[in-house]
């Protein structure tokens, strides 16, 4: 949990880097999949080509690489992902766990460049 995705962090170019993950059309809507970026497992969720989330694929509670296989949904206005193991629910934007206070899921900014999804990770 070294990174907070704020614009301030963007300015600090030495700490982060945008990595190409995969073409947008590789992902089915609301069907998460994992990508391997510099040895790190990251789960991608495409809601629409304009709304793509990236979080750590490692379940913070169970330490297993499964988050990409959870169910995407919403709680009120917040987009969520539920762990496929024990169903803890996380805010996809902030990583905050909505069912177990204090637990956090690492999140990463995303963007689409030329039809390819990019994820910003620490460099």
């Amino acid at each position: 949990m070294t990174l907070t995705a704020t614009t301030a962090a963007h300015a600090d170019a030495t700490s982060t880097v945008w990595l190409r993950a995969c073409p947008v059309d590789e992902l089915e809507p609301a069907f998460g999949e994992a990508v391997l970026l510099r040895g790190r497992q990251i789960a991608l969720f495409l809601i629409s080509p304009e709304e793509i989330y990236a979080v750590s694929n490692i379940d913070p509670v169970a330490s297993a690489p499964v988050m990409a296989r959870g169910i995407v949904g919403s709680r009120g206005d917040r987009r969520t992902i539920a762990s496929p193991l024990h169903k803890e629910v996380y805010d996809l934007s902030s990583g905050e766990c909505l069912t177990e206070p204090g637990v956090m899921l690492e999140t990463f900014p995303t963007r689409v460049v030329g039809g390819v999804i990019e994820v910003e990770v620490t460099g």
């Binding site: 089915e28 809507p29 609301a30 069907f31 998460g32 379940d59 169970a62 297993a64 690489p65 499964v66 296989r69 959870g70 169910i71 995407v72 496929p84 193991l85």
Partner: peptide
């Protein structure tokens, strides 16, 4: 047809997920 993302943990992989994934 978009049904994959609706399926529960096990149905999604047509197999039973164990505690380590």
């Amino acid at each position: 047809r978009g049904l994959g993302g609706l399926q529960d943990t096990n149905d999604r992989a047509l197999a039973n997920m164990q505690k380590d994934g």
